[in-house]
Structures are given as structure tokens and as C-alpha cells.
């Protein structure tokens, strides 16, 4: 039992430790920036996966929460109105409230109809934000902070937020709430029959996801010091947030993390040299994943593990039979059927 626990909790804690110590070894500012952006994306990716991966509700509207969080944080931080960290919490809360307002009507819809509705909501919000005067409308919002810029502080903020998001995701995946979400994902009617209220569960998952995405938006806004509606509320943001868990491995704990790294690297390293080429890469990645490995990168890794195990078993000859019967369907990283069981 403790062995299994250790295998679940040790890797993320070790990883967090390494990342916390990293700046102490004096890495390049560019690398710090890359990691910062990756953490921001990772947070949104993990958040989206709670609703889209666990509960199976595909939303194309997460730019709303990202943008609302970014603007809320921007307005509160600007001119030192509020402690930036409190402002980030407030940004998350604002996004969560927005998610309830959006969820109440849209969760009456199922499957593709829900997805389409979220596109509509998201575009509406973008247009409204473009024309809203107190946010500066289309010309954007500039944030001036009454303290000097400190890259390390941004790095740690983003890292802690991403770690928090991961912890929430891991907790939910091992908690009965997560099991309820997976039940809704696989058969909503049966979930209702056993007494899970799909509507309420979706609203809750939506709110948690929106909170985390809003905080991510806020973290980014504070770092960038300038945001504009077509940037933070843009449809590409929604698509990118959705792509990460799909690339990494939908409905798993580690998938969205891996997806976040992939997108972060593409965004920061490749776009810098070949503008627009990232869209081509996203498209190709999506096609490859849908065609060959719907489980994403994590699915490919698991497949590889199975191959390796099979080859090893074959070499060991007779051991095959009992090796398989001993570990019928070992799940290394989260997900599987009943999370945490």
C-alpha cells in the first residue's frame, strides 16, 4: 500500500523540489521565461482536463476564464490597488463566478451542443470586452506595479500555481468526486440513476477549472504587464488550452502536464524562429494523435511500457503467464477506471 502511495506522490514532489531549486543554480533568463510560460499553460491545461477529461464536457470557451482572470488581476494589481497575490485569488474567484453564470444555461446541453454553445459564449465575451470602456476596450490594459520587476518572483508564482493545480487534479482523481465525474463522462443517465447529480457536478468541476484558469490568466497578465481582449479572450487561447490535455493524454493526471510542456516549448521556442508555424504543428499533432494514439503522449508511453514488458516476458520464456496474471491492468499514472483504487 505504502509502495503504491509512494509511487503516486513521490514523482510530483521530487519534480517540484527540482523546479524550486532550479533558479538557485543561475539558469538563463530565457529558460526561466520558457518555464514560466509553460507553468501558466500547464495550469490551464490541468484545469481544462478536470471538466473536459474527467467529466467529458468539451468546452471551447476557456479563454473566457483566462481573460476574465487576466483582466480582474490587471485592474486590481494596477497602481498597487491590492496585494498582487490577493489579486490573483480574486481573479480566480471572478472567473469561477463567471463559470457558474455560463454553466447554468449551457450545461442544459449535452455533448457537441454544449461545445458549440461555449464557442458562442466565448466570442460574445470577447466582443463585449473589446467594446468595454473601463478596461480600455480594444486598445488593451496596461499594468503598472509600484515595485521593480523580479523574474524569479514570477517564476515561483507560476510554479506554485501549477503545482496547486496539479494537487487539485490529483486529489480529485483519487476522490469520490472524480469517480462521479468519470461516471458522468461514461454514462450520464446511469450516473443520475445512482444519485449523482450531473448538473451540479458539472457546475462544480467547471467552477474549479475556471478558478485555476483565471489564476493562470492573472499570473500571465501580471508578468506581461499589458493585455488586450483579442489576446486573452481570443479563440486561439481556447483551442490551445483544449489541445494540451488532448496531446498529453485526456482524462489522466499527468497528460495535461506533458501537454503543457509540449505547447509551452512550441510556443516559446519554435514560434520565435518560425512565426505561424506552430499552427501547422498543432494541426499535425492533432491528426497524428486522433489517428494513431487517442490516449495522447501518455497513451503512447503506456503502449511502449507494455511492449517492453512483453518483450522482456518473452525473453524470460515461461514467466509470461504468471507475470500477466499478476498484473492484469497496471495503471502507472492516475486515470485508469476508478481513480485511486
Amino acid at each position: 500500500m505504502t509502495g503504491a502511495r509512494l509511487r503516486i506522490f513521490l514523482p510530483p514532489i521530487a519534480l517540484l523540489g527540482v523546479l524550486l531549486l532550479l533558479p538557485a543554480f543561475g539558469i538563463q533568463p530565457n529558460a526561466v521565461r520558457l518555464l514560466f510560460v509553460t507553468f501558466v499553460w500547464m495550469t490551464a491545461s490541468i484545469a481544462w482536463n478536470l471538466l473536459g477529461g474527467f467529466a467529458g464536457q468539451v468546452s471551447f470557451g476557456f479563454a473566457v476564464f483566462y481573460g476574465v482572470g487576466a483582466y480582474a488581476a490587471a485592474i486590481l494589481i494596477d497602481g498597487g490597488r491590492l496585494n498582487p497575490y490577493l489579486a490573483l485569488v480574486a481573479a480566480g474567484m471572478t472567473a469561477a463566478i463567471a463559470s457558474v453564470l455560463i454553466g447554468l444555461p449551457t450545461f442544459r446541453l449535452r455533448g457537441p451542443y454544449f461545445a458549440i454553445a461555449t464557442i458562442g459564449v466565448s466570442e460574445t465575451v470577447r466582443v463585449v470586452a473589446t467594446n468595454l470602456e473601463f478596461t480600455g476596450g480594444a486598445s488593451g490594459y496596461r499594468i503598472t506595479e509600484p515595485r521593480p520587476f523580479n523574474q524569479a518572483e514570477h517564476y515561483y508564482t507560476a510554479l506554485i500555481v501549477a503545482a496547486l493545480a496539479f494537487a487539485v487534479s490529483l486529489f480529485i482523481s483519487r476522490h469520490k468526486f472524480g469517480l462521479g465525474l468519470i461516471a458522468i463522462n461514461q454514462d450520464e443517465d446511469a450516473a443520475a440513476d445512482t444519485g449523482v447529480n450531473p448538473f451540479v457536478y458539472k457546475l462544480k468541476a467547471h467552477a474549479v477549472a475556471a478558478f485555476l484558469t483565471g489564476v493562470a490568466g492573472g499570473v500571465f497578465a501580471r508578468y506581461a504587464a499589458f493585455i488586450h481582449p483579442n489576446g486573452v479572450f481570443g479563440f486561439p487561447i481556447s483551442v490551445q488550452i483544449l489541445l494540451m490535455p488532448v496531446i498529453g493524454g485526456l482524462g489522466t493526471v499527468w497528460g495535461p502536464v506533458i501537454g503543457g510542456v509540449v505547447i509551452g516549448v512550441i510556443e516559446e521556442e519554435i514560434v520565435a524562429y518560425f512565426p505561424q508555424v506552430h499552427l501547422l504543428i498543432y494541426g499535425l499533432l492533432l491528426i497524428v494523435i486522433v489517428l494513431f494514439e487517442p490516449g495522447g503522449i501518455l497513451g503512447a508511453i503506456r503502449r511502449l511500457q507494455r511492449w517492453v514488458r512483453r518483450i522482456r516476458d518473452r525473453q524470460a520464456g515461461k514467466r509470461t503467464a504468471d507475470a500477466r496474471s499478476k498484473k492484469p491492468d497496471e495503471v502507472l499514472w492516475g486515470a485508469g477506471s476508478g481513480p485511486g483504487r
Partner: peptide, 18 residues
Amino acid sequence: HLWPRMSAEDNLLMGAYQ
């Protein structure tokens, strides 16, 4: 209306979700 990608036992346990 079982949950196809949950194990049989998890399906059963879902019956005692409350």
C-alpha cells in the same frame, strides 16, 4: 447503462455512491 471503461467492481461501488 454500465460505465464501459470502469472496472466491474467500480461499477458496483458506484451503486453505493451516496
